[in-house]
Simulated scan of single mutants.
Amino acid sequence: MNEAAFDIQPVNRFGGSNTTIRRPKEIACFSYDQQRRFSLGDSSIAYYYPPSLPADLNIGFDTFQKLNDAADEHLDALLDTIVAMEKETGKKCETDIVTWRGMMTKILTAPFDMMNGFEMNATCYQGTIFIEENNTYKNRQKELQKNQRMPPGMASQELMMYWGYKFEVLSVLHKTWDECTRAEIEGRQNEVVNNSAQYCSVVKTGMGNVRMVLGGEVDAVWDCKPDRKDDPINWVELKTSAEIRSDRDMIKYERKLLKFWAQSFLLGVPKIIVGFRDQQGIVHRLEELETASIPGKVKKVGRGTWDGNICINFAAEFMEWLKQVIQGDGVWRIRKLEKSHVIQVYKVEESGHGDILSSAFKTWRESLVGNDCTMDGV
């Protein structure tokens, strides 16, 4: 099948019974340092420690060391981490889907995010579908967003993006609090903001009959990672949002909560800390949200702009359908146009796997052919 389409609407057909969900469990991790150098392990892990309020998110904008992410990193870091894990365990990671958390967020939120589009590349290899973002599309969208004219009195897109990174710097420590000096804790306001460093969690999870391995950045841990690998990790996601002053603001915030929830739900992040800021970029208050409770609150006390159950059922059904469409050799494009209610899947390369899979990953996997080695439960 070289071309197929999946209708998002009507979304109410995805209501009803709950899809079985496999709780995300971390199976590996990797880090980027401030020079964007990759390493296995948790060297870039951060620890949550509340910022002092009020917090001015504008400070340091002129010294912002912004990551240039125009280059296509594909799935390389995620695949390198999977290879290292397989070498360590002696078992092959058997799963249906391998992708970044960001790609699954776009799919999970699609039923209630009609305005935005996306483009992804996908290929099937050894029975697993590997999905990456289409880098050309990503860069084009970033350029459009950068050039977007803001209403009078509103900060630029660049500055508002910086506010988010600044809030993260003000809210984390690079060691546990008992290992930090008072000067380190109180000096976070003067720290140069660099968004190259990241801790990335690799989790096994699943929806319905679809097993997934997802990689994604985690902002911080509430306390510390448990010694027992089977114990859940108290991750924290850090977000900023404008103060809510009207019904319109409330609807806007509720729609933001859809993405907040989806991102955290997919990696098993139990808590989200939201810093509410004014139009000048000053955070005056914090709010702690339990990820699992967000859909219920939106349904019961919000404006009901989205339904988490529908999102999960939709994603499970779409991914099950995708498994039937993307088979055999070649590269596919997964595309949703802006304001469209259809996800298109079509073949763009008849053979090979494009650049989605690194040569190192393919070489390693080919060396396993014939070996009876599978990782249980992934």
Results as ranks from 00 to 15, higher is better:
93 C>F: 14
154 M>C: 12
178 D>H: 14
193 V>H: 00
280 Q>R: 14
301 V>F: 13
84 A>Q: 04
28 A>R: 03
301 V>I: 15
249 D>I: 05
131 I>K: 07
204 K>S: 15
24 P>R: 05
173 L>M: 09
127 G>L: 05
250 M>W: 01
321 W>A: 04
162 Y>N: 03
85 M>R: 14
218 V>P: 01
283 V>L: 04
335 R>W: 05
151 P>V: 06
246 S>P: 09
373 C>D: 11
231 D>Y: 09
241 S>R: 03
183 A>N: 14
199 Y>R: 05
317 E>V: 08
371 N>M: 12
154 M>S: 11
35 Q>D: 01
357 L>W: 06
286 L>N: 02
214 L>I: 03
320 E>W: 07
249 D>M: 00
51 P>Q: 09
75 L>M: 10
353 H>L: 06
45 I>H: 10
362 K>L: 14
43 S>Q: 06
162 Y>P: 07
57 L>I: 15
8 I>R: 01
50 P>F: 05
258 L>K: 15
49 Y>R: 11
288 E>C: 08
343 I>C: 08
294 I>G: 03
82 I>L: 01
161 M>Q: 14
123 T>H: 04
66 K>N: 02
235 W>G: 09
166 K>T: 03
78 L>E: 09
287 E>I: 10
12 N>G: 09
236 V>N: 00
155 A>D: 04
97 I>A: 00
263 Q>K: 09
108 L>K: 15
118 F>I: 05
79 L>T: 12
346 Y>W: 13
274 V>I: 11
41 G>S: 02
130 F>G: 04
4 A>F: 06
288 E>Y: 06
110 A>L: 02
270 P>Q: 05
4 A>P: 11
122 A>P: 05
363 T>P: 06
175 K>Q: 14
160 M>A: 14
268 G>N: 03
78 L>W: 02
111 P>L: 06
300 K>E: 15
140 R>K: 12
191 E>P: 08
347 K>A: 12
168 E>D: 15
22 R>V: 10
325 V>E: 08
153 G>W: 04
